[in-house]
Write a protein that binds this DNA or RNA. Structure first.
Lengths: 352, 352
DNA sequence: CCGAGAAGCTAATAAATATTGCTAAACTTA
DNA sequence: TAAGTTTAGCAATATTTATTAGCTTCTCGG
């Protein structure tokens, strides 16, 4: 009658976790509930969480479909309030996939508030959700709240240092490679790069991909072709001007679409025609990309697929080690990346 | 039939179900787990399941006293998956306000699927949420599912024909008036309007506001100054060109910011300088508005305030009749609406 | 009509977890 | 260094669900 193979002789209880961690059952409970009332030292918390992971502790009946009334639910928790559509698309993917199994999705935005996070996780524990997706707007390393350990959890667009949870992030480096390779294939050789702010993972990795693709094509990375931006139109605008003051590249790869907007403008001010006299490549496939003139060739963040993967992982077989999956970022070809050689995309094609 | 005063966030326990079904807690446990060959009569089983359904009982892990654990929750349900940031801002406002009272917010996106809506409402009924916000991405009339009546509900950015629920929508007409008055105050007289698609409430009402402000200033509405757009940059671009082919207005009021983007571009193509030789006004205060050059003066949709109002209404006194509130849309002055007069506030007949 | 089962349920109890205080140590301050 | 305060953890306890061991009644063969 039991679906799980791992039922074994005895189910793992808090008491066993406590024994292994050398603390009391109460302490384990406190750590897992993230209750503020109780103060637990970092060392003890670490030991407890380690024991939880090693023993694979789950509160009773986790994963078992509630036989009584009530629907199955997956909760997804975002660190920041999502003003970008990225979040929405992940949610959509997650939801699609979950609904196939008749599972609802509940979204919560915590604003990074630890108290809020704890309250939500506790509520979801009481609701006995199928699993929890802990998601970040910006791709980055996170320190998930301890209480996440009591759930079947997946990290979306982020990852934890200890690798305690399964996670999925975009393959930014390979995306940067893809973009650069597209420019190379269009015949460009002097390809400039406008980075984001250096503290952002995404910016770094896209640049690494750029450099790697150049090297793979037998070209050297020319530092004078690299400018620092700020992921905003203003930064793209300024960086493009600085770039053109110094040299004239065949193509400009902007580390995100917003900077490409500023880049377009600066290029027009210099009398260039994007897609004809010079090429531009973006990253992110934000909505604005398709409305630019010419429409911007860019790289798509696979947010939908990442969301789907989370649902599949939570609803799927319980074993699955805590691996980090990097998901491919495909290019969206629209025309701006052509140069003198090709591309007759001068007209706005029925702009949608 | 409702058991009167809010018994607070106490979760339904087996004991309560047993009481209602007139059996013992053990019997409920047997019925729900159906484990052994314990024999339960069909009649008793039916009674128990009925009580479970009526009370919305859902099992919780063994040994979880509900003291403070039963967090209070407000649910918000969007008809479409939110790719626009509007939704996010409403949610933020709702959440801020709710969290002041220690209440969590759970978001769900139904994609307009009636089955999904029903499933969510049923789940929330079982959870005993404080209230439900039924929200729409596009301002419009909706037909809320019947099950919504079981909750304390508010409609956000939409309204029902029968006026059964309290609702809050932006005062689009007055926003259109405000925008137009700003242009009048900047000294413009020949003010053009680029509408959205005519089936959209928002577009119509913004135009009504435009017309009303003109009349209030003693001007007549000149149909040759009105062009139909499509709420996209392409439409703004085309409409601006059509407009300039026919006549030359002092100012162009675009029914949304996206069209203003296309409008800017067309004006540049015509050799105009936005904010100096000609004025442009947007609507929505989308993010792009502040990145345009010059930054776009626009009208803000009060999504945050609307969200806050929903929380306050749900958490507030229960009487409050089912009224429709139209919330003011303030202007965001950035510079694009000035013209040759350079921002001197010429006296406007009928204004102030 | 009697007694062995069986059917249908409950009381009592076990197991798991959450929470309230309390205590001992460490750390401050006077 | 003594007194107070904070920190870190635990024992004890409360609350819920699962399970065991019956307790009643009903049925039916003899």
């Amino acid at each position: 009658m039991d679906n799980g193979a791992q039922d074994g002789p005895t189910r793992v209880t808090m008491k066993e976790v406590a024994l292994r961690a050398g603390v009391s059952q109460s302490t384990v409970s406190f750590v897992l509930n993230g209750n503020d009332d109780m103060r637990i030292s970092a060392e003890t918390r670490r030991r407890v969480l380690k024991a939880v992971a090693e023993l694979g502790y789950r509160p009773r009946g986790a994963g078992r479909p509630p036989k009584a009334a009530g629907s199955r639910v997956i909760g997804i928790m975002f660190d920041e309030v999502a003003t970008s559509p990225f979040a929405a698309i992940s949610i959509e993917g997650l939801q699609e996939e979950a609904w196939k199994a008749g599972v609802l999705v509940e979204v919560v935005m915590t604003g990074g508030d630890r108290g809020y996070e704890a309250a939500v996780l506790r509520k979801w524990a009481a609701d006995r959700v199928e699993g929890v997706v802990y998601a970040s707007i910006l791709t980055r390393r996170v320190e998930p709240p301890d209480a996440l350990s009591r759930h079947r959890a997946v990290l979306l667009n982020c990852y934890d240092a200890e690798g305690r949870f399964a996670s999925v992030v975009p393959a930014e480096r390979r995306g940067g490679e893809t973009a650069t390779r597209l420019l190379l294939e269009a015949g460009h050789r002097r390809i400039a790069f406008i980075s984001g702010e250096s503290w952002m993972d995404a910016s770094d990795q896209r640049m690494e991909g750029y450099e790697r693709a150049l090297r793979a094509a037998g070209l050297t990375v020319d530092p004078s072709l690299i400018e620092e931006g700020n992921f905003l139109p203003s930064g793209g605008h300024a960086a493009t001007h600085r770039l053109l003051d110094r040299t004239r590249p065949d193509a400009i790869f902007c580390a995100n679409d917003l900077m490409a907007v500023g880049c377009y403008e600066a290029l027009k001010e210099r009398g260039e025609t994007v897609g004809q006299s010079i090429a531009v490549m973006g990253y992110d496939d934000q909505e604005i990309a398709q409305h630019l003139n010419p429409p911007l060739t860019t790289v798509l963040l696979p947010h939908r697929e990442m969301g789907q993967w989370c649902a599949a992982h939570i609803l799927g077989a319980p074993d699955a080690g805590a691996t980090m999956l990097r998901m491919e970022c495909p290019a969206v070809v629209r025309g701006s990346h052509f140069g003198r050689s090709g591309g007759s995309f001068a007209e706005v094609p029925g702009a949608r």
